[in-house]
């Protein structure tokens, strides 16, 4: 693996092999200057959101606990335990706190798997 992936704002960027992802254990990836948190769930799906936790300002989302609320897969921040949807990035539980870095929701990035490679598209981030 290379030390850093050349940053690009457009199109899919390969970040790792699907085999690098352990079910329910998130990883962080550096895509240009952007930190992305990537999760593989037990249904085989792969999700990517911003690694920055809006409520603490630390890049830690990849180290949170996955789960679900109803049918919606979620990720909980390890710092103050806010819960976010992995599908929409929406903050579902604020724990009565105000965000310190941007809005309360996470940016969600498009993920595709190509030949066992996990590809992230930062352009889809919102």
């Amino acid at each position: 693996m290379t030390a850093t992936v050349p940053g690009t704002r457009h199109g899919l960027v390969p970040v790792c092999s699907l085999d690098d992802l352990v079910t329910d254990l998130g990883v962080a990836a550096l895509v240009g200057d952007t930190q992305v948190a990537i999760f593989r769930l037990d249904d085989g799906s792969v999700h990517a959101v911003q690694n920055l936790c809006p409520f603490s300002g630390a890049n830690v989302m990849s180290r949170g606990i996955t789960g679900d609320r109803g049918d919606e897969p979620t990720i909980a921040s390890p710092i103050y335990k806010q819960v976010f949807s992995l599908l929409t990035g929406k903050c579902l539980v604020t724990m009565d706190k105000e965000p310190v870095a941007g809005g309360p929701d996470l940016a969600v990035y498009q993920v595709s798997i190509d030949n066992g490679q996990v590809m992230i598209n930062l352009a889809g981030g919102e």
Binding site: A3, V15, A29, L30
Partner: peptide, 8 residues
Amino acid sequence: SFVNAPEE
């Protein structure tokens, strides 16, 4: 630290 940059 990063899956694509483990020492960074």
